[in-house]
Computed example of a mutant assay.
Amino acid sequence: MNSSKTMYQITLELRKDQLASRITPWRLLVETNRYYEIKSITGSVKRLYKEKLNTAIQETKHYSDGILAISAFCQEEQIEDIRSHLIEQLDAKINNYLKDLELNKKALCSKLAIKSYT
């Protein structure tokens, strides 16, 4: 089934203290029962499986240099809902990193306390 519908990729990038949001249109080329074939204005064709629509994808695998990024594909009427969901996902990711860092700090402090007694 060929169509002229548009899908949108929402990308949020948190860089130190700045949150940037980018919405990129992708033209729907083909729709099947399992996937969409979409094409950005400047890019190549991408196959987007239907179960991945409206699903957050972590763009940064490891936190470094103060940058975190996340994105999702959706239809136009869902842009604001997905954007809010992505912000919540970034917040949860940051909270998890903070918890991990607190545990690491406690382990390091206990190791330093043991060394100071010897």
Rank of each mutant, 00 (worst) to 15 (best):
M1T: 06
M1L: 08
M1A: 12
M1S: 10
N2C: 10
K5W: 01
M7L: 13
M7Q: 03
Q9L: 11
I10G: 04
I10P: 00
I10C: 01
I10K: 02
I10Y: 00
T11A: 03
T11M: 09
R15M: 08
K16E: 08
D17M: 07
D17T: 06
D17A: 03
D17Y: 06
L19W: 00
A20R: 10
A20K: 13
R22K: 12
R22V: 11
I23R: 03
R27P: 01
E31S: 15
Y35C: 09
E37N: 05
K39V: 08
K39S: 08
I41Y: 08
T42S: 13
G43K: 08
K46V: 10
K46Y: 07
R47D: 02
R47L: 07
L48D: 03
Y49R: 07
K52D: 05
N54G: 04
Q58G: 07
E59N: 11
E59H: 06
T60C: 08
K61P: 01
H62G: 00
H62P: 01
D65V: 06
D65M: 10
I67R: 12
L68V: 06
A69W: 01
I70C: 11
F73G: 04
C74K: 04
Q75V: 05
Q75P: 00
I79F: 01
D81Q: 14
I82T: 09
S84R: 06
S84I: 00
H85P: 00
I87T: 12
I87Y: 03
Q89G: 06
Q89N: 13
I94L: 14
N95E: 12
N95A: 13
N95R: 14
N95Q: 14
L103H: 10
L103P: 02
L103R: 14
L108G: 07
C109A: 15
C109Q: 15
S110R: 14
K111A: 14
L112W: 02
A113W: 07
A113K: 13
K115A: 14
T118S: 13
T118W: 03
